[in-house]
Every structure is written in structure tokens, then in C-alpha cells.
Design a protein around this nucleic acid. Structure first.
Lengths: 138, 138
DNA sequence: TTATCAAGTTGCTTAAAGCAACTGAATCTG
DNA sequence: CAGATTCAGTTGCTTTAAGCAACTTGATAA
């Protein structure tokens, strides 16, 4: 899990992925929407590409040279993004965050709250969860 | 959302929260399990406490002076932790991560995969989600 | 055919992380 | 009950990363 978060891990990579998830594809757009430093953006994009989270695509037309898109590995981060969003919606002061809403495209309604469930679909809280060490104790 | 991730945001805070979520309460145990630098641990614990994610509790007995525990705000990060875990289980090389498993305490079976759903319970993919800006476009 | 834009790179400054050694009160041990 | 050990930090120094502005380069656009 530590490796998981460190592959995505810092705020900048996370923001790149969030932007990518909701349509941003170009270097300059990532810059605008996140206002991170250019060298950091370059470095993070390269890292994400080299880890297979994003792909760099050559588009030889119309003033734009490259685009970046999420791979399946990257798109699989959707639950992470949504989980953080929902937590922030609940706990971060409204004045400290953008007021945007994720809705399902068909009906336009907000997404359901993400819940951790067992295999029969029952919602679980922390106390209901046990950590197993298959190979032996820590 | 950016504020959300930056309240938890860096790898160290995240690891503290993960450890706390699964039973760690003392400074020295956080140190052992995460091997972060002491000053960083101190600083992150203070920050988490000041943001209301964790609480510092005075325990005047048995060699231990303080304990740290998650508040409700902190416990509410469970879906984030589980989402990252499940992503790492799927995408990070096994040799690069600890082999631990989260199970439901009652039946001992692994948790269900977290899915993003609409309000009727249908699973959604990125293409099925729209970002709404209630106050006007970006 | 000059100007502009996208996508970087480079170099420098400031901030944060990493590490080891030190502190000081509480607690255990013989 | 004196000495050693543990817990929870601080402090100071070194190394690494972030932030910022200016420069570069190739591809359009006017």
C-alpha cells in the first residue's frame, strides 16, 4: 500500500490524475488548472508515464504536439479519487475547496457514497475489519 | 479535493493514518512500523491533531505517556485507505508490497471491491461520470 | 518570414526531508 | 532507592526536492 500511494502519492501527481480523469489531456491545461511549476509537471508526467499510469501520445497537428491520457491502471484510480472527494466534501470547509459535483451522466444525480463492504454487500466500519498476515505476524 | 489530499496528503501522514486505522496508538510504534524520521513523525502527528484527524490522549500509566487515535474525521478515511490498498493489490508488483489482507471480522473473508456507484447502486466508470460546476464554468 | 504557442530545459533560491545525537521526565529493576 | 531504560520528543546539520523565472526549440498561424 505504501508503494501504492508512493506511485501516485504526492499532491501533484494526484492532481494530474484528477485532471486527466475529468478530461484534461495537454501539458498547458494541466499547468493552468493546477498551477504547479513547469519542471515539476514535466517530472511528474514522465514518472506517471514510466509507471504506466499515463500514456504520452504524439499528436502532430494544430499547434499541439503531445497529449497525455490515463491507462487502465490510471483509470482504476477512480475509486481513490472519489473517496478523497467525498471525504473532502464532508470534512473540508467549503470556502477552502472548489464547488464541483460529480454526477452520473445518465440521470445527473450525485454519486452514491462509497462504502466499504464485505462480500455479501454489508457495509463495514473499521471495527469490523481485521488485518491478516498470511505469511506470519509482523 | 486538493485541500482534502493536502490535509492527509503526503505519504507520511497517510501511513500514520493507515497504522492508526489498524491499531497503532503510540509514537514509538508509528516509528517502528513506518520507519520515518522522528522529527517528521512529530511534525505530522501535530499537524494531524491540529486538523482534527487525530487526537492526542494523555495516558499517565505503565511507561506510556501519550497515545494517538483517529477522530471520526480520521476514521472516515477508511474508504480512501481501502481504495488505495485495492489498487495496489491489483497494480503494484507483489515483491514491492507487504502481503497483508483486509478481511471482515465476522466471516474472515476479503472485503468486496470498492465500486463507484450511482444512487440506484449501478457501478459507474469514468465515462459515466460528469463533472458539474454549480456556480458556473471554469 | 515574423510572431506566437506548446512543451519543455536550465539554473538558481528557498523549503522540506533525512539522520544522528541530545534531553528530560517517567518507569522499571535489582 | 539508585541506576538503567523507555518514551516522546528537540536540535542542528546535511542532502534532496520544490518553486520560480528565464531561455530553447520546433510547429503552426497571420
Amino acid at each position: 500500500m505504501a508503494r501504492g500511494i508512493s506511485e501516485v502519492g504526492d499532491i501533484w501527481s494526484f492532481l494530474i490524475i484528477r485532471e486527466a480523469m475529468f478530461g484534461v489531456r495537454q501539458y498547458s491545461k494541466f499547468l493552468q488548472n493546477t498551477n504547479m511549476a513547469r519542471n515539476v509537471l514535466t517530472e511528474r508526467l514522465n514518472a506517471l508515464v514510466s509507471r504506466g499510469v499515463m500514456a504520452k501520445i504524439d499528436v502532430g497537428e494544430h499547434g499541439t504536439r503531445y497529449e497525455y491520457e490515463l491507462t487502465e491502471k490510471g483509470r482504476d484510480l477512480l475509486p481513490v479519487i472519489v473517496a478523497v472527494r467525498q471525504w473532502a466534501d464532508k470534512w473540508v470547509e467549503p470556502e477552502d475547496r472548489a464547488i464541483v459535483e460529480l454526477t452520473d451522466s445518465q440521470r445527473g444525480k450525485p454519486l452514491a457514497r462509497l462504502l466499504v463492504r464485505d462480500q455479501r454487500g454489508r457495509a463495514l466500519d473499521i471495527e469490523d475489519i481485521t488485518v491478516r498476515f498470511p505469511t506470519g505476524g509482523r
